[in-house]
């Protein structure tokens, strides 16, 4: 496997360092060749930067990609927005040699060149494709059999598909497959692919953001979900923080929000505390309690067993 730089992005490091912690723990657990790289900036965030200055958006992303191009590394990120923005610009520059030449003219002053060789992957498709469900199953100490979990992909994990090309943009499967590998039932629900709505909080429309969170959380409550699994800091902010704010106002949903790396970390045998899950704002105890009570089912010990247990997809 090629070495890769982890692109942490601004939000995880500024607001959710515990998500960095659990990500590092699962990357280390599988001995994946990751490293931190000096010199990254914001990816940049599309709604704040692209709306103001498209050329700045392109230049910033191109510089980040050029940085790893120069080191012969790929990028893996636990943030969907970062991957999507970087990949969008990479696609635009690969398709437009005139724009690429202009951007490289500017990057040259910093001793960099955008080539677009680096592969840009989100952590979920990365675990699915490069680690694989068999390797994951073999490492499971206790799976999530009997747990009813909902997956929220997050729009930018697979869209825009022309830039990311990692799953079906209208009917993605990889996150569901990983959940199945971890033994959980992935609940099919109408708003599964609906945008979380956190973007509305960034344009001074907090009530609309809460409304979008409410629609999804109500649905999950009525379905009796034990938790919502996601892997995007923006979606996490929307469903953990905004759910907490609504609970403070007396609207109780009680849906614990679990980051993919936390779910995987728990299955590998790390404790919730080690993974930093006590930093969530919505209580994760109901989820952990139910899991503790469920019977112990370890992962399949051999490849043959793993092959027999694999879900058809």
């Amino acid at each position: 496997m090629k070495d890769f730089a982890v692109f942490w992005g601004c939000t995880i490091q500024a607001r959710f360092p515990f998500l960095e912690k659990s990500t590092r723990m699962v990357l280390d657990a599988f001995k994946l060749p990751h490293r931190d790289v000096d010199g990254f900036t914001c990816c940049p965030e599309k709604s704040l930067v692209n709306n103001v200055d498209h050329a700045a958006f392109v230049l910033t992303a191109a510089r980040n990609v050029a940085l790893v191009d120069g080191m012969g590394l790929d990028i893996v990120s636990p943030c969907t927005g970062c991957v999507s923005n970087l990949a969008t610009v990479k696609g635009e520059l690969k398709a437009n040699p005139v724009e690429r030449t202009a951007v490289n003219g500017l990057l040259k002053a910093a001793g960099k060149e955008f080539k677009g060789n680096a592969k840009l992957t989100h952590l979920v498709p990365f675990f699915h494709d490069s680690v694989g469900v068999f390797a994951i199953k073999q490492r499971i100490k206790k799976d999530f059999s009997g747990m009813r979990l909902a997956v929220h992909y997050g729009c930018h994990m697979m869209r825009p598909s022309h830039a990311l090309r990692n799953d079906d943009p209208l009917d993605p499967k990889k996150f569901d497959n990983l959940l199945a590998a971890l033994g959980a039932v992935s609940l099919q629900h109408p708003t599964k692919l609906q945008c979380c709505g956190q973007g509305l909080d960034r344009v001074d429309q907090h009530d609309n953001a809460l409304h979008m969170a409410r629609v999804k959380l109500k649905e999950l409550k009525s379905l009796g979900a034990d938790g919502l699994v996601l892997c995007c800091p923006s979606c996490f902010l929307q469903f953990d923080n905004n759910q907490f704010l609504m609970e403070k106002e007396g609207e109780k949903f009680g849906i614990p929000i679990i980051y993919f790396t936390e779910l995987l970390g728990l299955a590998l045998g790390y404790t919730a505390e080690e993974l930093g899950m006590n930093s969530h704002r919505v209580d994760v105890e109901p989820f952990l309690e139910k899991w503790k009570r469920s019977p112990l089912v370890a992962g399949s010990g051999t490849i043959d067993e793993a092959l027999n247990a694999v879900v058809a997809f």
């Binding site: 360092p17 960095e20 000096d38 510089r63 910093a110 930093g276």
Partner: peptide
């Protein structure tokens, strides 16, 4: 949380090329 020191930011370099 015992996390390593964060990698250095490329902000200054970006400002120059911007």
């Amino acid at each position: 949380m015992n996390l390593p020191a964060p990698a250095a930011s490329g902000g200054e370099e970006l400002k120059k090329i911007y």
